[in-house]
Structures are given as C-alpha cells and as structure tokens.
Design a protein around this nucleic acid. Structure first.
Length: 554
RNA sequence: UGGGGUGUAGCCAAGCUGGUAAGGCACAGGACUUUGACUCCUGCAUUCCCUGGUUCGAGUCCAGGCACCCCAGCCA
C-alpha cells in the first residue's frame, strides 16, 4: 500500500532512527509561517517536507502562525496562507495554532525563568545592548542590570506587562553568557515592549515574546517531535535547547535545519517580494510573474507540479540555486497529461484559401488530448479565410525552416494540406496576407496519394474564432542570481508582453478563470482572473519546448 | 582574528558500517510523429574542493589546508 517514492534524505534518516529506537512514538511536525507576507515556492518546499513527513510516518503536522510581531503582521496574510496551504493539497485538520494563543503560558515561563535567576529586566537602550554585546571576535560585557534580585525582576517584568514603561525602555533578557562565542547566547532579549495592538489579541498585551523564546516553547507545548527549519537558525539551536532545558520537562522537540530553496532568476525573500509589490513593479502578490503560490496559481501552475518539484529537488544542507527549468519541466509533465488541447494564434497572419468556396464553413474533428483518449474530440470550424501564426511563414526560409513559404505545402492540423501561392506585401515590404490553395483530398490531414509534408501548423478560422488577449511572461529578472548586485537593475524589462490581437478557437467561448489548455505547438495557457465572456484573457503558463527556436539561436 | 555550517557533473542530489561514482533537470545525437511537443533509445564525473596519510582497496577513515554560506534586530 505504500507507494511512497519520495527520495530519502538526512531528515528522514533521523526520523527513522528515532522511531526505531523508540525515542519518538509518533512524528509531529509543524509549518510555522509568520503572517507577514504571502507564501512562496520556498515555503512550498517546507510545507511539502513537513506535511509530507507527517503523512509518510503516520504522524501529524500542525499549521502554526508565528505571530509575535504585531507591527508586521496582518490577518490578510493569515487568510492567504491558509488558502495557499490548502491549495497545495495539505490539510492540518484540527491542528491550527497561533503562537499568540500561548502568550499567557509564555509569560508564565518567563516568570519561571526569572525565579530561577536566569532572566532579568534590562534597562539598557537598544544601542547600548548592541554595544554591550561585543563583536564576533570580542566578548561582550555584562549589563549593569544583570544582577538584580529575583524580586525586583519579578516586579519590573510585571510592570512591563502592565504597560508602566515606555517602548524600548525595558526588555527581559536571558542570563546566559556575555562571553559566549555564539553571539546568540549573549543574554538574548526574550521580551520587548510594543504598545501596538495585535491582530488577534487586540490590546491585551503590550509586551511580546521574541522568536527564540516563543518558538521552542510553542513546539514543546504542541508536542512537536521534529522542528524543521532553515539553515540560518542553526546558530539559534543552542538557545532553543537552553530555554527548554530550563523550564520545560523532557522530552524536547529536536530542531533540524535544512537549506532553503533558491530558484534561478527569482528572489525568495519576503522583504524583496514586498518591495516588488509596493513599488508597483508587479501588479500584486498574485502577479503571475511572482514566485508566490498565489502568483504561480494565477499563472496556471498546478499543485501537483509544485509538489513533484519539491520532491525532486531533495532536502539537504548545502546552499543551492535550483534551475528554474526543473520547475517548468514538472509543470509540462503534469499538464501534458491533463490539459485539453486547443488552437490559438498569437500573432495572426491571414491566409485566403482561394479554391475554397466562399461562405462555406465545415466542422472538422479535432483530438482533445492525444495523451488521453478519454478526453475525446471536438469540432472546429474551417473556412476560406483563416489565420496562421506569423512565425510559421517565411518569405525566404533558411534550410532548416520547414513551415510555410512561397510555393510550399504544409498541413493545417486536423484540416487540409494547403500550398502557398501568393504573398501580399505592404509598401514597407511586410507580409500582410497570404494566398493559398487547399487539396480537398487531404481532409483530416493526410493525403490519399501518400505524399508527405514537413510541417503541421495550427490555425483558426478568421470569422469563426474569438479575439483574445494573451499575456506572455518571462523571468522577472535577467540574472540567474538576481541578488548579485542591485536587485532593481537586474529586472527583466521584458518580463511581460501583452498580445491584444490573438485569436482563439470557438470552443474557448465559455472558459472560466483558471481553466488550463495546451494551445497546440505553443505552450500551456490558462484563463486569467481578468478574463470575462466579453474579453478573453489568457496567461501563458509555460511554452512548449521549442527545438526550432533553439536551432535559430545557433 | 570568534562561533556555527557546507563543499560529488552546467544545475539539484544519492552514496548508511571503506570494495571500485544512483537518479532527475539541462545539454548533444538518433528513432517515432497530423503538436519541430510528448514518447523512446544513446551519450554526458578514470573521479568526488585541495594536499598528505592509513589501507590490498578511500567520495567514504585520519591530519592539514582552501573556498563559500550564516551569526553582532528590542525581525523571524
């Protein structure tokens, strides 16, 4: 029954050992986003990892909002995060938590720490704390407030809670070791005063716990067994363990770090993504060029493709930048199986078939998906005037170009062979229209006499087709690592191209936003959120692989 | 010059107790083709950051280097 083919990794090894040794009975993981931005594909890696582990080892995975900084957080983000996790295909069931729900318990743990003489209220300013912290190579020095009595600390901390002090005037700090080589351990701040209402607790609190204090205890409270986070928290692990060691009974959750995902040509930092949104470089968090799950969804990516991708990239500890082409491959792989085919002409070039009866329309049978016989067939109208892709015709074709050219015969997909008989140019010498003749004997696309053509073109009847807007996307940045140098100078000015004169086949009349298709010979497209019955709008999710384009570059 | 990590092909990444370098993407050929798509074959690391050492044998063990990443928020 276990058809799990997920490749193994060092985290799975740890879990398997813990299960085998009996150290852990049931695996409990968690995905702990801070609701201060939209989820992106880097989060997808973490979501797939945490939920995937829980699923594969018959455990559970919690969704917990790490909402300890009300200044940056918002319910808008909470909602989008839940929507995105669900969309990706994961279910936290009953296990929805908020660190803010633990504020009362966290406060009690802080009091406990004070009673043990392991935390104190410090009145140094932020700048002073920084100075006292020392540097990476020199030890820090102890705060003059470090040796207050337990009673005084207790009283001061309570007064902090009661709002008697100004923001920044007092903090609660752990009393660890100002000379620790790991700066995280140099009396880290545990609580700070913020007289800011919280999106969930309102104005109930004016002191808020820091990440380091909150995270380990939240994990412990929820019975998390394996607390999986990214590499930059490796330095914080000793503090994670120190806090639990002081106030929480064993067993403790185990923190394990892995390398976050980086994708070529894209940025993954929430701060940078926020900038793109705020500066209006993209249309919003769900702009189809964004690596956010909302953006990818709008672009036409499927959850299946993203999950497949997350599985293929693996989990390890080495920093890396994954080739965007792998994501695209996963998408094509998925859509090739399930996207119905349709014909659309992005840059129309009119062809008049001179020997085809004027006014006649016939309906030709087209296969909906050659990879899925169950998808059936549909009828597409054919007439005397059609549009083909401009790129499918060349006046003076090079050797390897085997599409339409003067005097040349090609096949129109599911229709007839046509031969180009004449080319109409404007004064500037641009091709504006083609004249052709068709062979009635080749209906359906094959010649009874057995003659072959080298190319098959997609097409659309001129009258019997629909106008549409098509949005073509490219990487938002033109550098493999956009973080190298100035981010905004690395922007790709051509990341969006809007084609407003495209034509699509009639069967696409009633498409709904999100509907996905393969436009034959072009790529995978989906109807955009902006698409209406009056104005069809399609996003190109990803182009098909294009051997001809590759040849042209040579 | 402190501490914590990581280094296997163009990009990811397996490689567990040493036994003679998985897989995927990309790329290059070829077959097939009513999508120059898909599919299918074939090729793609005498070598695992470097240098020594141990061993019959080392990507795997030991020693010493080198490179890159993270840490001095009252962010997470």
């Amino acid at each position: 029954m276990d058809t799990n083919t997920t490749p193994s990794n060092f985290i799975r090894s740890i879990i398997e050992e813990d299960l085998a040794s009996g150290k852990v009975k049931k695996v409990v993981t968690r995905f702990p986003p801070e609701p201060n931005g939209y989820l992106h594909i880097g989060h997808a890696k973490s979501i797939c990892l945490n939920f995937g582990l829980a699923k594969d080892y018959n455990g559970t995975c919690h969704l917990r909002f790490d909402d300890t900084n009300p200044e940056k957080e918002d319910v808008e983000y909470i909602e989008s995060i839940m929507e995105d996790v669900r969309w990706l295909g994961f279910d936290w069931g009953e296990h929805l938590y908020y660190a803010s729900d633990y504020f009362p318990q966290l406060y009690d743990f802080a009091v406990e720490l004070i009673k043990q003489g392991k935390a104190y209220v410090c009145e140094l300013s932020a700048e002073q704390i920084r100075e006292y912290r020392g540097t990476l190579t020199e030890p820090g020095k102890e705060s003059p407030y470090r040796n207050r009595s337990v009673e005084e600390n207790l009283e001061l901390f309570e007064r902090m809670k009661n709002g008697e002090f100004e923001e920044g005037s007092h903090v609660l700090r752990a009393k660890i070791d100002m000379a620790a080589p790991n700066v995280v351990m140099r009396d880290p701040v545990l609580y700070r005063i913020k007289k800011v209402p919280h999106h969930r607790t309102g104005d109930q609190w004016v002191i808020y716990p820091m990440y380091d204090f909150t995270h380990c205890l939240s994990d412990a409270i929820e019975g998390i067994t394996h607390s999986i986070c990214t590499l930059e928290f490796e330095n914080n692990r000793p503090l994670y363990e120190w806090i639990l060691e002081q106030v929480y009974p064993k067993p403790h959750p185990q923190q394990i770090e892995f390398a976050r995902l980086n994708l070529s040509y894209t940025v993954m930092s929430k701060r940078k993504l926020l900038q793109l949104v705020e500066k209006g470089i993209v249309r919003g968090w769900d702009d189809p060029r964004m690596p956010t799950l909302a953006g990818l969804r709008r672009r036409g990516y499927t959850p299946e493709a993203i999950r497949d991708f997350c599985e293929r990239i693996g989990v390890a500890k080495a920093n890396s930048i994954v080739d965007y082409a792998l994501l695209e491959h996963c998408l094509r792989d998925d859509l090739n199986q399930k996207a119905p085919r349709a014909m659309a002409v992005l840059r129309p070039l009119k062809v008049v078939i001179e020997n085809y009866p004027e006014g006649q329309v016939e309906y030709l049978e087209a296969v909906n998906n050659p990879n899925d016989p169950k998808a059936g067939t549909r009828l597409v109208p054919f007439a005397r005037e059609i549009f083909i892709e401009r790129d499918d015709f060349m006046l003076d074709p090079p050797k390897k170009f085997y599409r339409l050219a003067p005097g040349r015969e090609v096949r129109l997909r599911f229709a007839y062979f046509i031969k180009c008989t004449d080319v109409i140019l404007d004064e500037a010498g641009n091709v504006v229209e083609l004249r052709a003749v068709y062979d009635p004997e080749t209906k359906g696309g094959s010649a009874p006499d057995g003659r072959k053509v080298k190319a098959t073109l997609h097409w659309v009847a001129a009258e019997h087709s629909l106008p549409a807007e098509v949005r073509l996307y490219d990487h938002l940045f033109n550098k493999e690592d956009p973080n190298e140098g100035d981010l905004f100078e690395n922007l790709n000015p051509n990341s969006l191209e809007v084609l407003s004169d495209a034509r699509v086949e009639l069967s696409l009349k009633d498409v709904q936003p999100g509907d996905k298709f393969q436009f034959e010979r072009l790529g995978y497209f989906c109807a955009d959120l902006d698409s209406t019955a009056e104005r069809l709008v399609f996003n190109r999710t990803v182009p098909l692989k294009d051997t001809w384009a590759k040849l042209q570059k040579k």
